Amino acid sequence: MTANAGLARLSLNQRTIRGATLPEAVTACVTAGVPAIGLWREEVAETGLEAAAACVADAGLRVSSLCRGGFLTGSTAADRAAALADNRAAIDEAAALGAPCLVLVVGGLPAGSTDLAAARDGVRAALRDLASYAGDRGVRLALEPLHPMYCADRAVLSTLAQALDWAEEFPAGQVGVVVDTFHVWWDPDLLAQIARAGERIASYQVSDWITPLPADVLLGRGMMGDGHIDFAPITAAVATAGYRGDIEVEIFNQAVWDSPADQVMTTMCLRYRELIAP
């Protein structure tokens, strides 16, 4: 497909129009002139892996990423082994879909534990098991640091610097990082760490930070321009670091999800052109 003017690097992360099936999300991209899509494993499974890959390819779209792998901090050896098996399956799915990276949300503290250092060591050990497996299949593991408010339950990986410390143990083609504005915009060291990241930037994701945060802080992402983030310096830093890949809009927000998908797509494209497009 041919993207609309100014949208050549825009990608719709499926969860921005949660409730749409994978074929419906693909159709929404084609209608809006958005040339890429970030897929989620649940919706891929509902459609079927081969059918999902064909649906995207037949529409002429790129797959910008697959979400998600990770959750590597199980409390027992059996839990951790199951997580590794699931992540290998996710890597295989990403390869079949033509996704260049598998986004990893690494997991929070194990149930009943307060040992943060041990949880982090466990993630790093898991990466040593998974990195070459991913690289051999042409998929890069994309470590996503999450805002510190998610440290206990979702990600013991909280800053871009920390993500790079972990990633740099491996070849850049095996392990990279995600720069997600919602999670990292607050970091006073952000621009320096983006410059450090360079070729390790595997995905650039955008959404805004809105206040007041909802009771479920997972749904605190807003449409770009509705919150507090200054996107221009972050986007410029990502570009200067050498990233030339797709830019995903990933929004978890009940009001956005309750809006008609075509309205969300129209607003997303407008705000992307105004605030994000490099």
Rank of each mutant, 00 (worst) to 15 (best):
A202K: 03
V175I: 03
T159E: 10
S132W: 09
Q162L: 09
A82T: 08
Y150C: 08
R137Y: 10
E24Q: 15
V217D: 10
A51W: 12
P35D: 07
T2I: 12
E168D: 15
E24S: 06
I247P: 00
E93N: 11
E43M: 10
A99S: 07
I276F: 04
T114V: 15
S132T: 14
Y204L: 13
I91T: 08
V56T: 09
A5M: 07
V184S: 00
G112V: 07
L66F: 09
D129L: 01
P23W: 10
T27L: 13
C29R: 03
A202P: 01
G112H: 05
V175G: 02
S65F: 06
L97P: 04
R221W: 05
D189A: 14
A54E: 15
G176P: 05
A155S: 15
N4H: 12
V103F: 12
D121F: 03
D121R: 13
T2V: 12
G176S: 05
M1I: 09
G69C: 06
A8T: 14
G138E: 01
R137D: 12
P148M: 14
T181K: 00
I17C: 14
A53S: 15
C151T: 14
G138Q: 01
S75P: 07
A28Q: 06
V184G: 01
A255Y: 07
E43I: 02
A36G: 09
A94W: 10
A59F: 08
W166R: 00
R221H: 08
S158W: 10
D230L: 12
E42S: 08
R15I: 13
G135E: 14
T76D: 06
T159G: 06
A20I: 00
N87K: 08
R88V: 01
L102G: 00
A89W: 08
F231I: 00
M268Y: 02
W186N: 12
G98K: 04
V123N: 03
A255E: 15
G19S: 06
V106F: 13
P171T: 01
A117D: 15
W186I: 02
L102V: 01
D187P: 08
R221L: 05
L84K: 03
V249I: 15
A134Y: 10
S11W: 08
E42R: 09
V105M: 13
A142E: 04
G108K: 01
W40Y: 13
A59V: 07
N4K: 12
W209Q: 08
D246R: 00
P278V: 00
V256T: 12
A125Q: 14
D262H: 14
A119E: 12
